[in-house]
Amino acid sequence: MTEETFEIVLTVNGVHRAARAPARRLLSDLLRHDLGLTGTHVGCEHGVCGCCTVLLDGEPVRSCLMFAVTASGRAVTTVEGLAGPDGRMSPVQQAFQDCHGLQCGFCTPGFLCTITAFLRDTPRPTDEEILEAVSGNLCRCTGYQNILRSVRRASDLMEES
């Protein structure tokens, strides 16, 4: 049994990428294993943990719940694409370091993508909105307290700049 493969062409972090993969290849696997962008993590492969969250045309999606073929022609941003062109960490990344918003760092890329989109849409959120925004991502290490602080700090950093 040889599996049929498809040409998948998409933009990842602003770069035009192409790969051949079977129809069932998950977007998370394509990013990680075909394109070598291993910053996107996989914690459950059933859409609950949020580790695999990337931005698809700017909106957060769970890349473990999408077939890669369906991302053809779309623009994907992964954690590798969040820093500035000069390599400087984005305000959200910086805030996570400032507030000790990560421990093992496995969940972190998913949080960063989720929060990046959230603060773009809601630059000055209330505490309630922050809690709501991060409450779809699991973290086993931090107890979330410093992640909530990180979102507030990121919002402040963005306002400052």
Binding site: G39, V79, E80, F96, Q97, G105, F106, T108
Partner: peptide
Amino acid sequence: ARREDPRLLTGQGRFLDDLGR
């Protein structure tokens, strides 16, 4: 602040399944 963070925050962490492509 933690010194391991910049790596982990920019997708440069290397977890087990990130190895051995």
